[in-house]
């Protein structure tokens, strides 16, 4: 038997996908955990940010800073479009509108009519050039124990984790500031905050923008080493993010990050173990049937987490009742 799937699972800690999901989950924690906004369209924010970055980089040849600015501006505009009509309404309306808007984005970028710009179903390749041009690392192979990386692979991993840590520190300070106390107050009792003279809708909008921008930037980290694929930003991505934040603790800063690491390491481990069992004919399923199992695990884990441990690993039970 071949046990190298364990190293493969551990190497998920450094995968850009894990890093990106940690950042996007942090954004979703700002929405859902801290402000109580039921955003089911985080995948839409990720798609908008990713496409803004990839299109401006590959089509218009913008420099890195300008493409990143486009990513941020795109996410902000998307947040405004979603937030203005829905933030005054009850939480479940926001959930339906955000999930619908995310799907609208995905259907739209896949349309053949605009595929010269968006790449259609194939997505966009090659948005990494401007980023890799800034790479100061010497061109050798780096052996890190859990994997061997070339200089490009190491560069995105370093930058990715630095971005996540900086974002986490910023969010931590923000949530300890008066601003953070107000948004947490909105989560607990919107009317009480409103009666103190605060503009609740505007605070919710700021929160939606902040979390959405983190989601947009997350996609940049994910797509630089690979490519932008529209179907990676369907509804299941948002549900993965919910599983991640509920795993780690939706009302904490560390929760989404640790949640993302656990999520991807466990998924990779379960894939590895299943492959091992299937290829040695120890369980009676085909390798085609192996694919859906990870999603079944995620679905059941999501249900069990919400029912039995809504505060996650790091959360405080008092903060995690999420009443509508």
């Amino acid at each position: 038997m071949d046990f190298n799937f364990i190293t493969l699972a551990l190497s998920q800690i450094l995968e850009p996908q894990t890093i990106g999901y940690a950042l996007a989950a942090l954004g979703l924690a700002v929405h859902f955990g801290f402000t109580g906004l039921l955003n089911f369209g985080q995948a839409g924010f990720m798609a908008v940010g990713g496409y803004s970055f990839a299109i401006t980089t590959t089509q218009f040849g913008w420099p890195l800073w300008a493409a990143l600015a486009a990513c941020v501006v795109g996410s902000i505009i998307f947040a405004l479009i979603l937030g203005i009509p829905t933030l005054r309404l009850r939480a479940d309306y926001l959930s339906i509108v955000t999930i619908a808007a995310a799907e609208i984005v995905r259907y739209t970028v896949k349309t053949p009519d605009i595929s010269p710009i968006t790449g259609g179903s194939d997505g966009i390749n090659g948005s990494s050039d401007t980023f890799n041009a800034l790479n100061p690392l010497p061109d050798i192979q780096y052996h890190l124990g859990i994997g061997t990386y070339n200089k490009e692979q190491l560069w995105i991993r370093i930058v990715g984790w630095v971005v996540v840590i900086v974002a986490a520190l910023v969010i931590r300070q923000l949530m300890r500031s008066p601003w953070g106390r107000i948004v947490k107050g909105i989560r607990e009792d919107e009317d009480a905050v409103r009666s103190l003279g605060k503009n609740v809708t505007w605070y919710k909008m700021q929160s939606l923008i902040l979390g959405g921008v983190l989601g947009g930037l997350a996609t940049v980290i994910v797509i630089i080493p690979t490519s932008l694929q529209p179907d990676n930003y369907g509804t299941q991505t948002t549900f993965f993010l919910y599983t991640i934040i509920l795993l780690g603790g939706a009302t904490t800063v560390l929760g989404p990050i640790v949640g993302s690491i656990i999520f991807w390491v466990v998924l990779s481990l379960s894939d590895g173990i299943l492959s091992l069992l299937v290829s040695n004919h120890l369980i009676p399923i085909t390798s085609i049937q192996q694919g859906p199992i990870r999603f079944i695990i995620v679905g059941i884990a999501l249900m069990l987490l919400v029912i039995f441990r809504p505060q996650g690993i790091f959360g405080n039970k008092r903060e995690a009742h999420f009443s509508a």
Partner: peptide
């Protein structure tokens, strides 16, 4: 509460679908 229930239904949807 209703919001956790909604998330439970999402988990159920994901699990059943696959």
């Amino acid at each position: 509460a209703l919001i956790p229930l909604m998330i439970v239904s999402i988990g159920l949807s994901l699990a059943l679908r696959y």
